[in-house]
Write a protein that binds this DNA or RNA. Structure first.
Lengths: 220, 220
DNA sequence: CAAATAATCAATAAATCAATTGAATAAACC
DNA sequence: GGTTTATTCAATTGATTTATTGATTATTTG
C-alpha cells in the first residue's frame, strides 16, 4: 500500500500543532534553561498541575520533550539541542514577520531600554569582546540555571543577590550581563541596577538560548 | 502598561499553529519550489479553491507567505529563505523523534530503496563529489522548477522526458539525481529508470530544499 | 458595458483542542 | 500497611479550527 505524501505532512503537522499554543511554548522556553519537574513548570507558567501535565504530554507525543521519573517527580527535558534551534528560529521568523510581535517586543522592556546608554550586544560583538578579554561577563540568572550550564568565563550574579556582590565587580571595565533570552527580564533588571550604581554595563540581549542554539559551548 | 511574557508566547504560537496543519505544510512545500497562484496550489494539494485560499491567508497572517496580484491571479510565495530553514528543521526534528514519521518515511519509497545499490548521497558527499568533478548532476524536476533555480552545474532532465535524453548521459561516470526533497518521488523514479538502463546512479536524497536551507547557492 | 475568470468572503456544521474538576496511580515516608 | 506527595487519567464544557457551500469582489476580455 503506497503511503501518500499527505500522510507525511499530517504527521509532520503534529509537531507544528505542538508548537501552536502559547502555554506550551512557555513550557519549552523554561525547559530550554534546564530540566524540571511538572510542579515547577506549572508554577512558572501559571498553569494548574493537571493542565501543565497534559500540555507536557502533548509535547512528549510530538517528540519535543522526554520525561524520566526521579523518585516521585517526573522530570521533563527537551529531547535535544535541535528543539532549541527550532524555538529560536521560530522566534526569529516571528520577529521579522509578525508586526504584532515587533510591537509587543518593543513595549515589553521599553522603560529600561530608554535609559540604556548603549545598544545591546550581539553575539558576534560579545564573542569578539571575550576573545580580547575586554569585558567582565555576568550571568544574572538564578544559581540553579547557572550551574546547569553557562557561557565560558561568566560569573554568576543572580539579580536577587546582585546588590551584595557589587564590591566584587570592576568599575574600570565594561560589564556584560546576560540571562535566558530576549523574553527574560533578569538582564534588564541587572543592567538598570548596575547603571544606577555607576558601572559601565551592557546587555547581551539574546542570552544563553541563542548562544546554545548557535552550537557554541557552555561550561557547567 | 506592562506586556506579559505570555502575550509574546501567544503571538509566537500563531506561527506554530500555522505550521500545525498538513495541508498548509503541503502548500508551503510546493511554494518552497517556486511561487504559484492559488489555483495551482489548490490543484497540487487536492484542496478546493476556496479552502486553499483560506489556508493561504492563514499562512499569510502568520507571515510565512506573501502574495502579489499578477493580472487576475494572486501569486503566493514564501516570505524569505528562513521559512525554508524552518520547514527543513521541523522535518529533521520530526524524523528523529516521531516514531510514526520514521515508519511512514521507511514505507513511502520502500520498493525503490530495496533495489538501490548504494545509499543516497548526503549533502557533504555531493559537495565533495562536485568539487572533484567526479559526477554528473541531474535535476529531474519539471523544467519550470529547474528554471526557477537549480544546483550549480546541474543538467535538467525531467523524469517525463528522461527516456529520450538517455543518449546524452555518460555511462562511464556516476550520475547523481536530485529533486525537491525527501518527500519527492521524482529522483526515485529517475534513479530506477537509469539503473534499469545500466547507468551508475545515486540519489541526493535531501534535494534542493535542504541545499537552499543550508544557504548554498543556486543558479537560474 | 456585459461576460468570464481568479480569488476571497461569510455562514454553517463537524471535528478538534483546552481548561477544569475530581478520581486514580505510583513512589516515598512513617 | 496506611498516609502523603507528585503526577496522570477521564469526563465535561466551552472555545477554536476546518471543510463546504454559495455569494461577492476584482480584473481582464469580448
Amino acid at each position: 500500500m503506497p503511503v501518500s505524501r499527505q500522510e507525511l505532512f499530517d504527521v509532520l503537522s503534529q509537531l507544528g500543532r505542538a508548537l501552536g499554543n502559547g502555554h506550551r511554548l512557555a513550557l519549552l522556553e523554561h525547559l530550554a534553561q534546564k530540566e524540571a519537574p511538572v510542579e515547577e513548570l506549572a508554577g512558572a507558567s501559571g498553569l494548574s498541575i493537571a493542565n501543565a501535565s497534559q500540555h507536557l504530554q502533548h509535547l512528549r507525543r510530538a517528540g519535543l520533550v522526554t520525561a524520566r521519573r526521579d523518585g516521585r517527580q517526573m522530570v521533563y527535558r527537551l529531547t535535544d539541542e535541535r528543539i532549541l534551534r527550532l524555538l529560536t528560529l521560530l522566534q526569529e521568523v516571528a520577529e521579522t514577520h509578525l508586526a504584532e510581535m515587533e510591537r509587543l517586543m518593543g513595549r515589553l522592556f521599553a522603560d529600561d531600554d530608554a535609559g540604556e546608554a548603549l545598544e545591546p550586544m550581539t553575539r558576534a560583538e560579545l564573542q569578539r569582546a571575550l576573545e580580547e578579554g575586554a569585558v567582565t561577563l555576568l550571568d544574572v540568572r538564578p544559581n540553579a540555571e547557572y550551574q546547569a550550564g553557562h557561557l565560558p568565563g561568566a560569573l554568576n550574579a543572580p539579580v536577587a543577590e546582585l546588590e551584595s556582590m557589587l564590591s566584587a565587580l570592576p568599575r574600570d571595565r565594561e560589564i556584560v550581563a546576560y540571562c535566558r533570552g530576549v523574553y527574560c527580564a533578569f538582564s534588564h533588571d541587572a543592567a538598570r541596577l548596575l547603571r544606577e550604581r555607576g558601572f559601565q554595563v551592557r546587555r547581551y540581549q539574546a542570552g544563553i538560548l541563542e548562544w546554545r542554539a548557535a552550537g557554541l559551548p557552555l561550561v557547567d
